[in-house]
Design a protein around this nucleic acid. Structure first.
Lengths: 246, 246
DNA sequence: GAGTGGTCTAGACCACTCA
DNA sequence: GAGTGGTCTAGACCACTCA
């Protein structure tokens, strides 16, 4: 039995963290939207009546968290999932040989349902709350690799339809921020190995019983609020999940 | 077909990066060893004839890479795998419920062999190079969770024995740095799902054919030099692999 | 109270982008 | 050439640790 030390209230909040909070508020409120250029460091410094160095430190932490992107000579931009290079950090399945090319997502279905208790709890909602269930298959280099089910709370994604998803070429996180002002900031994943049951086996074109990876993902937006549940079934005959630990 | 932009030679190397290189050299050379207190920022600044701020920035990057650990009021220390909190980042298997308590590693075998071509290549060695093969089982809360095979190049781990491993209670990365001056800085993992064959099934106490996670790990030291190969077979009945992506 | 890392400032200058 | 982020300095002061 271990005792965990009490977490004391943050006694002291340095200036640059207060600035960081102010900048974050402008991001949350939508004053600056994904892809936007935010005011220069010097302008922010005078707006907040602090030195440029203090603003830099605040922006630096936000850039480390991938909320902002700095570009020397151009300025500082709000990070966006709509940019090419933003796609890959969240897609950890990759071919055993060759590049992650030719990524094709095929939407199978998008319909409404009521959340079961477990899913509701993960999203901070009551059992029976309305949600969308999206199912799709992703192929890499013409080989079926992932079958996934995505659950989204109906209240945040009002009006979602198959058409909306297809307009965005199934680039979900880009769609969330463009269409619904929902910005995914980080995800937590739990990975297990299971034997393929009928549904996943069928969609992936493998025999029932084939070992698959199952990835249970919860995606979070500001204030660590869960806004997406995703279960991905991955065939690892020709693909694998990659990870780097520092 | 995509064209990748040419990587231009680093035209400009800021001062703090040069300082960072100098500090790294002192770490590589063993002038400062894991757990050691390094000189204060002010002392390093005068040694290198730069301002404290420049040293701070260099140390900051090294701290971000987990090479150094700063402690306000005390000083800056060389990071070490021998500390309690250093164990967990590299152990991603965790129980579905309850804490990661009661971690017990049982050494099965430690013997010498010659590397096959594939393993040799990953370690930057010729096929047939001498290596140690360590096999062990790890249990979490008295439940067998992981069976793993670890391959270490004989030249870097001269004199390794089962006794050495057991003296360190199977805390491998701590042992590497204490006994062999090999400091693991990061690892790359590839995860697949497979059906348990006889050996892994036996060690994990599951039926043959049970879906298991297989994690192929390559561990790196300074200059991105590979120094350990590890294959872990994980039962995911009551455990899972956790990951966080930002 | 001495010593450490942590914060903050003001100011200079550099590297880069774009018109 | 004007504007941006990036580097570097010197100096002040703060929070924390330890004797």
């Amino acid at each position: 039995m271990k005792t965990i030390a009490h977490v004391t209230a943050p006694a002291f909040q340095p200036l640059y963290r207060q600035i960081k909070t102010l900048i974050t508020q402008s991001l949350v409120s939508g004053e600056w939207r994904p892809g936007d250029l935010i005011p220069s460091e010097i302008e922010l410094a005078s707006r907040f009546s602090v030195s440029q160095g203090t603003v830099r430190k605040a922006i630096g932490e936000l850039a480390d968290q991938n909320l902002l992107v700095r570009q020397q000579g151009k300025g500082t931009f709000v990070a966006s999932h709509s940019e090419e290079r933003s796609q890959f950090p969240y897609l950890r399945i990759t071919p055993d040989r060759g590049a992650l090319d030719d990524l094709v997502a095929t939407l199978l279905d998008c319909r409404k349902l009521k959340l079961d208790a477990a899913s509701g709890k993960k999203l901070g909602l009551a059992a029976g709350s309305g949600a969308f269930l999206i199912t799709r298959v992703m192929s890499i280099s013409a080989r079926k690799a992932i079958f996934e089910e995505i659950r989204l709370p109906a209240t945040r994604f009002k009006g979602l339809s198959a058409e909306t998803i297809e307009q965005h070429h199934c680039m979900m996180y880009s769609m969330y921020e463009t269409e619904f002002d929902v910005r995914i900031l980080h995800v937590e994943e739990q990975i297990k190995a299971i034997a393929a049951e009928r549904t996943a086996a069928g969609h992936l074109g493998v025999p029932e019983g084939t070992p698959l990876l199952v990835i249970e993902r919860v995606a979070y937006t500001y204030a660590d609020k869960a806004v997406e549940l995703r279960r991905s079934y991955c065939s690892t005959k020709e693909h694998h999940y990659r990870n780097r630990i520092v």
